[in-house]
Write a protein that binds this DNA or RNA. Structure first.
Lengths: 348, 348
DNA sequence: TCACGTCGCTAAACTGATTTAGCAGAGCAT
DNA sequence: ATGCTCTGCTAAATCAGTTTAGCGACGTGA
């Protein structure tokens, strides 16, 4: 892999100058007094030899590697990770950096390995990512260099990138209000054990805050808040069936994520109800399956790609604010409509 | 990031020996004649100082980096990539290596960048991965070192790792035959433009080969082979509706992937048919959504994790066979049953 | 004419490891 | 006493860059 490469010494010799001169020219150093002709000769020689600097040699001296570590608990290998990594990859490339990926899987030994690998390679910075938005504690060893948290917060007040879940809550609620839904809006996905599951609760709390505030401002209260042990399709299914058994059937259901909505669709389909005519469904995340559903699901998208990109920007471009909220854009599709029977009747 | 680390010189000094001695001991060199006591002193010193070798310095000299490049067209950021990366990550860690991830997005300039980044960093090997099983051509520059293709083949006869699509075809067909399905098995997902879309066709051809051979051995022929422009839910939906419009309704549908099956579920649900009582559905890939469907979908799983792992093994453990087929295990769930009316009647 | 500053450039040190070549001393045979 | 081998270890070169310190030539002002 990469034998026979021209070295700086080769370039210097061909340009008839010293290694020092060649190094300075190629690094575009200011304040050096090398002549215009010397510059030209060096550039020409480098070009002709196809010279590329040896990263190992350079970083041995400079302690910079043009490498960023992307450490995650488990995110790197889930469906949600793609965008995060792609955004980071793109932003890194624009800055001539490269991504070293490791995964801790929540395992202390693996984390230890990841940290050592990172330290040994003297990466220029670390992006510490979590699968689900949550609070975590960062191993002290990596705090010696720049760190940005991605999709997570920490006690250490490190700069972090988070999706704007509260803003998404506002958007969702406004959308429903805009279609004329009022007092028959149900919500699926509250979680009783928020202490035990801070991952879910961080997003859940924020989303709910946005929803409640917006509805309250319009003088509206949620009809029901349905609790779920987890945010999986089967829980959405069960919760929706419970909802349909009520005398005051909701006109719209807000699901805390698309998997719950997936289950809701199944329950509604079984009950012979059609979305959005009989009932609107709206959700959070923009899972790929959201656009597979019939009708396609309206949902506030987790801006993974933007978030990954932002993390690299914070890490490399300095002046990192304490916290960077990335907006969650609403994907307007076909699962929301005015309440059935509107504008007149409100019963079915 | 990583200042103040003890160097080999520090270890040597503390052990009262030379750098040479320390280096040899720590690298476990055979044939050196250093005393047992010298060994102990070096180990102790390294331990006490928390010594970790500087990778940049080491690779400058040895041209080894304990780093593998994972180059992909687009795979790294799709839902299918997770397992591939995780498997590779695990196998790499076991061999004390680390993964450098880049993506070409099928763009020549990005590919160029990726290659240069790799060559500059002198990675020990390259895993070249494709999103969809297909034939590709590898940029010559990286052929100077070890390369393994993941989910792809090439004209250069490089070692490659592929899912055993043909074997999966056999499994699928055997399963259906085992449940008693015979002459009313339909297939969705043939593709007309296989020349223009080698990605799909490589898997499609192999799967079909396995299915046909197995059915033929039992004296059975496919009832219909339904063509689809792509393998998306909407195409599965349309194809299934077409199937249901026939007088000889199939007793089982084989979908070439889970997204098609997803669409098939939608069409069957709309038609008021229940799976698997009225009709069995079976598929390929084991997309995460397969287990969200009701009933959960039986499908031959793409062994992504195994494949990623295997790629690293081939790359690092030497003696790479030309081609490594990884079996696709069948996830037996609830979407397959005996034909409706069996064992007696065959009409509905 | 000499001191001084500027210009254009280079020698050599330095980064932290591995590796080659070889040295001092002990033991043994001649 | 000499030559030989073996043992246990080390000095110095090397990898490919960056950086520090400084050198010789030239112009200028006193």
């Amino acid at each position: 892999m990469g034998r026979d490469r021209a070295t700086l010494a080769d370039v210097a010799k061909r340009a008839g100058l010293s290694k020092t001169a060649a190094s300075m020219v190629l690094n575009g150093r200011e304040g050096t007094r090398l002549s215009a002709e010397a510059h030209q000769r060096v550039f020409a020689a480098a070009e002709e030899l196809g010279y590329r600097p040896n990263v190992a040699a350079r970083s041995l001296r400079t302690r910079k590697t043009a490498t960023i570590a992307f450490v995650s608990d488990i995110v790197a290998t889930t469906r949600f990770a793609g965008g995060l990594i792609r955004g980071a990859l793109d932003a890194a490339r624009e800055r001539d950096h490269v991504l070293l990926i490791t995964e801790t899987q929540g395992d202390a030994a693996f984390e230890q390995y990841a940290i050592e690998a990172i330290l040994d390679r003297q990466v220029d910075g670390v992006i510490y990512a979590a699968m689900a938005t949550r609070r975590l504690s960062v191993p002290p060893a990596i705090l010696s260099g720049p760190v940005v948290l991605l999709n997570a917060t920490s006690a250490e007040e490190l700069p972090c990138v988070l999706p704007d879940d509260e803003g998404a809550g506002v958007t969702i609620a406004e959308t429903l209000l805009g279609y004329g839904h009022r007092d028959r809006i149900a919500l699926i996905g509250r979680n009783r054990q928020k202490e035990r599951d801070p991952e879910i609760s961080l997003a859940a709390e924020a989303r709910l805050r946005g929803i409640r505030a917006t509805l309250a401002a319009a003088g509206v209260k949620l009809l029901v808040e349905n609790f779920c042990p987890e945010w999986l399709p089967e829980h959405g299914y069960t919760a929706t069936r419970a909802l349909l058994a009520r005398p005051d059937r909701p006109t719209a259901i807000i699901c805390m994520n698309d998997r719950l909505a997936f289950g809701a669709y199944q329950a509604l389909g079984e009950a012979g109800l059609t979305i959005p005519d009989d009932l609107s469904v709206i959700s959070f995340d923009d899972d790929p399956t959201a656009s597979w559903l019939r009708p396609r699901l309206s949902t506030a998208a987790l801006p993974h790609e933007q978030m990954g990109r932002r993390a690299v920007e914070l890490l490399l471009d300095g002046n990192a604010p304490a916290q960077s909220l990335v907006p969650m854009p609403l994907r307007r599709r076909r699962s929301v409509a005015p309440p059935s029977g509107s504008p007149a009747a409100e019963h079915d």
